[in-house]
Write a protein that binds this DNA or RNA. Sequence first.
DNA 1: TTGTAAGCGTTATCAA
DNA 2: TTGATAACGCTTACAA
Lengths: 333, 333
Amino acid sequence: MKNLTISEIASLANVSKTTVSRVLNNKPDVSGETKERILSIIKQYKFKPNALATAISKKHSKIIGLIALQGTEYIFINPYYLRVLHGITTEINKLGYQLMFCYAKENEYIDLFNNYMIEGFILLSAGVNHMNLLDEFYEYNIPFVSTTELPDNYKSNSVDINNYQGAKMAVEYLLSLGHKRIAFISSFSSLMANKERLKGYKDAMKEYGVPIDDSLIREGTPTFETGYKTMNSFETLPTAVFACSDMIAIGAIDAITSKGKKVPEDVSVVGFDDIDLASNFGLTTVQQPIFDKGKNSVKKLISLIENKKVRVPELPVKVVVRDTTSKLKESTK
Amino acid sequence: MKNLTISEIASLANVSKTTVSRVLNNKPDVSGETKERILSIIKQYKFKPNALATAISKKHSKIIGLIALQGTEYIFINPYYLRVLHGITTEINKLGYQLMFCYAKENEYIDLFNNYMIEGFILLSAGVNHMNLLDEFYEYNIPFVSTTELPDNYKSNSVDINNYQGAKMAVEYLLSLGHKRIAFISSFSSLMANKERLKGYKDAMKEYGVPIDDSLIREGTPTFETGYKTMNSFETLPTAVFACSDMIAIGAIDAITSKGKKVPEDVSVVGFDDIDLASNFGLTTVQQPIFDKGKNSVKKLISLIENKKVRVPELPVKVVVRDTTSKLKESTK
DNA sequence: TTGTAAGCGTTATCAA
DNA sequence: TTGATAACGCTTACAA
């Protein structure tokens, strides 16, 4: 049973397709009687208008593009992004839009925008190294929202937690446990979120009067490997680690224990994100509402697209204390 | 700078839009000279035809739909699926198609197919509980490919490894190490892949003359929790575990070690998939080429769509021995 | 080799 | 309240 067209519905109902279109779009000027008749036929034949035809006619497609910057090889490996994605798809579906995966080169996004009449983009992991792209989007008047903090001039185009605050709270917690040699392991340092977290780290250290040791500040990617290798690269282990990603933290823990040391007795470890594995492994971490972040990015983007003022509140962040942090041992003070 | 239309290009080149269309579609009957002229204008203005208009005109959209069956809450949590997805997006991009995330209710896929002129679907995690849907696809002549084994009548609609063989090899390996009390922990038992793996498990046991103990055969979801809880539910631990997912294996290991037992000294553990975490944790596992599975699903689907005979070979599977398996201790024989 | 005109399935304009 | 008719941006008969 093939899908009917609006014209076929029209002749079945003995009206013009204009009238059917009016009914489909809930226009006021249709008599109650004809409206009922048309609706019942639409229902009977399970008619749904062709969305692509509607798109070229109405000039918008209800398609939203998803862009994974920062190298899909890293994005497509981290459960964190899966969770974001889940939030995105859930909300998109709810609001009647569709999500198109734009896996393309940076110079092709604008073409995709035009060709497929994409209405706006959601950016995963946009960093300061992508500002040219954002400027281009801005210039072409292309709506976009980033799921991670952006520099000030694009602040309103992102949904994110307060990364500065999250990191500061975590490091303060470690400091309150007596730690002073606290390592900071960043994932992509080009992400504003990580820059803010580094600030939070430094400010917390300053507040506690602990001098900052640059050799304890490292960066890599949000992966197990980064955590593992970074920990192995220390000549003398720090007494605590604040990692910008749970995956890094898990890798760090593995490195520590395979050296014969114990977590948290010898080294305390704090992660960031609170992915499922974090609770599985009892990892102390900075929890952010990842799923809601995905949902909110859609809400914000669609409000930009439809020019509605929707208030998307900043999401909360908090430290979840589990089993990988403890007071500094007297002996190592 | 807005996107031009084919008519505008046509007048810039002093030809009809038909001729421009011919050039765009590489039709033969255009003189070399006009072709050059049109091409240079297309290039100059960076013109790309509107894909949606092309779609309704040509009757195909170059859009492929992605369907996550079996509950997105499980799909969107497992790095395995991310890796599949990565393969899918990579190949789709290469072949000039687009991927649309169809996050919808089961009865809405056909509508989406019609509305957005989707050309076919890639199914993640289709199980025997989805045969109605597949039958419907078949009936409506909707191309689809599953990234996991399907029952015999739809065998050719899937790209998968030989799950039976993979499981059999793994269990044979455990048996060769002297193990007899080998637990089998399945993820969704509705997946053909897992049914086949169970068969492989049973056949290997039979070959070694080891009686099958049904209390050692368990099922759950492809998650850490399933592994963790299942291991905790045994009154006396088995000496070896074969898990149908690395995530399950990792959860199982965590449960074992938190009981004060050691892996592999007390219990050997084998996983399935070989996700990144598996190598990170030194997990012995059944390796399948996940990324290639994603790629091949696209190849196969597009060959169905375009009616080309493309040979998509079965992917290889092998046991990767790492640090979570060892010979059965004499004491526990 | 090129162009005219109709067609794809919608919506929008304007008149009746 | 309704319906012709044009329009959206493209492809495709059919003619020239």
